[in-house]
Design a protein around this nucleic acid. Structure first.
Length: 255
DNA sequence: ATGGCTTAGGTGCTAAGA
């Protein structure tokens, strides 16, 4: 079975690209972030017509998450109980015997922004919540736009980015703490070519210069490690007309 | 040089992303 995550930066704009991508890569589970749609505007029927079930949590203008799945999904939470938040950044659902947490982690904006402590607090609350989710025994996968480049190998120009948001030590520390709860960064479970990223800035021809960051991740529990067959980034959608600035990350799990 | 591009909301611009 295959599971993917993709920050689509507006599902209204990107829906045709999502459906086209699913034709070429018919994953079993797809986590979407930045749908930027209120629930009444969510294109449920179109997605169901394409052969997927879908659960979603949105708000006007910003954020918004969804999980598409071949098998039915049962919503477990749209919010971390330790961090009540009007921003729709979390969809936790039970799918095919897994707990799938689709997360649109806060960006933080800059180290001196009030959004930065919001990001760190959000991450701390996640670290409190995750052990409780693990306790029910159902394997937990955390997939999404983490807005954290875990190491310098995940940054096109580490010197230029040093000390900035997305790479700051406090964020990376929390990412490491999450791994320490018993997860594997699927992508780094395999030998990978250098300079592979999941996001490129729209400006300054970021994609053409490969000026990117690897900030979209799929964390799987160590218990699933023997089943992890592959993890890769599909750059193809970033070459579309009117692309999202992010591109999908995919894992394949053996039965 | 804090710019550069893209989106939503709404109809001219700002806020926000990463």
């Amino acid at each position: 079975m295959k599971l993917a995550t993709w920050n689509v930066n507006s599902l209204k704009v990107r829906l045709p690209q999502v459906l086209a991508w699913l034709e070429t890569e018919p994953v079993d589970i797809l986590c979407l972030q930045e749908t930027k749609l209120t629930d009444d505007k969510f294109p449920r029927e179109t997605i169901e017509a394409a052969g997927y079930q879908v659960v979603f949590a949105g708000q006007p203008t910003y954020n918004g998450v969804a999980i598409l799945s071949r098998e039915p999904a049962r919503v477990l939470a749209t919010e971390n109980p330790h961090y009540p938040d009007p921003q729709r950044r979390i969809m936790l659902a039970e799918v095919s015997g897994l707990q799938v947490l689709c997360g649109y982690f806060p960006n933080g904006q800059s180290l001196d922004s009030e959004k930065y402590p919001y990001k760190l607090g959000w991450l701390d609350a996640l670290l409190t919540w995750v052990p409780q989710l693990q306790a029910n025994g159902m394997p937990l996968i955390i997939a999404g736009d983490y807005n954290i480049a875990p190491a310098d190998a995940d940054v096109h120009d580490p010197a230029a980015w040093a000390g900035q948001v997305l790479v700051s030590p406090a964020e990376r520390e929390r990412f490491e703490k999450l791994l320490a709860l018993g997860f594997i960064d699927s992508f780094r479970a395999f030998e990978q070519a250098p300079k592979l990223y999941s996001w490129w800035d729209y400006r300054q021809m970021g994609f053409r210069r490969n000026a990117g960051l690897r900030i979209d991740h799929i964390l799987i529990p160590q218990s699933l490690a023997p089943q992890l067959a592959r993890c890769w980034i599909d750059k193809a959608p970033r070459k579309n007309e009117q692309p999202s600035d992010h591109t999908p990350v995919i894992i394949e799990l053996k039965a």
